[in-house]
């Protein structure tokens, strides 16, 4: 393991940012980014699950028998997802209503299982924490940016407040499902252009 802790953290923010570089976990990325608020809410929920499951998987990596490791990972992940779901209901109910089925579906988000399997199961606690935090923040920011683009164009608002005034004709296409694909494609394009050197 030549990489330092800070490198593990930073790679999740740009070089391996989940939705745009690894193109993983697209289901929530496309479905919930109608508004910035929903996007960031989903991102933070995923961030929490990712960090906690990475930590626990890493802590238990020598105890878990390799034959049933996936089952163990899923139990760990599902527990944290349920915790997030309960907390969201208790503290932030409108977000729970807006995200709907996509909160429990964090269980099958491939970023989380992917990081548990590919990273946390082979690395120490601190490195796994840094990896989870970096990936999670990268994911949250991606969803926030995508949500911002779609909300500003699609409904002319940012975080629920109107920014263009009443004369603005919203580009409704952007908050529909096809708009999600178009916005994601454009973001990928921009990321590749900037990254190309």
């Amino acid at each position: 393991m030549a990489k330092s802790i800070s490198q593990e953290f930073v790679k999740g923010l740009w070089a391996e940012v989940p939705p745009f570089r690894l193109v993983l976990g697209l289901c929530p990325v496309l479905a919930v980014t109608k508004t910035v608020e929903n996007g960031l809410g989903m991102g933070v929920a995923t961030l929490f699950v990712l960090v906690c499951s990475n930590l626990l998987v890493s802590a238990m990596r020598n105890v878990i028998p390799s034959k049933v490791r996936i089952a163990c990972f899923i139990i760990i992940i599902a527990t944290f997802v349920t915790i997030v779901e309960i907390l969201m209901q208790a503290l932030y109910y409108p977000l729970y209503l807006a995200l709907g089925i996509f909160t429990p579906l964090i269980v099958v988000n491939c970023i989380i299982l992917g990081r548990a399997e590919a990273f946390a199961a082979k690395n120490g606690l601190i490195a796994s924490f840094a990896d989870g935090l970096g990936m999670g923040i990268g994911f949250t920011l991606s969803l926030g940016v995508l949500g911002a683009v779609r909300e500003v164009l699609g409904s002319g608002t940012f975080w629920g407040t109107s920014i263009f005034g009443p004369s603005f004709q919203p580009f409704t296409f952007m908050i529909e499902a096809p708009g999600a694909f178009v916005a994601l494609g454009l973001m990928l394009c921009v990321m590749n252009l900037v990254g190309q050197k």
Binding site: P65, V68, C72, I75, I76, T79, I83, I86, L87, Q89
Partner: peptide, 25 residues
């Protein structure tokens, strides 16, 4: 035996934790 023990302990722990949280909230 080890597989069974690990899975059982994990599930028990997870179940207890979630039940407690559910009751609290």
């Amino acid at each position: 035996v080890k597989m069974i023990i690990v899975l059982t302990i994990l599930s028990t722990f997870s179940g207890t934790l979630l039940a407690a949280l559910h009751n609290k909230t």
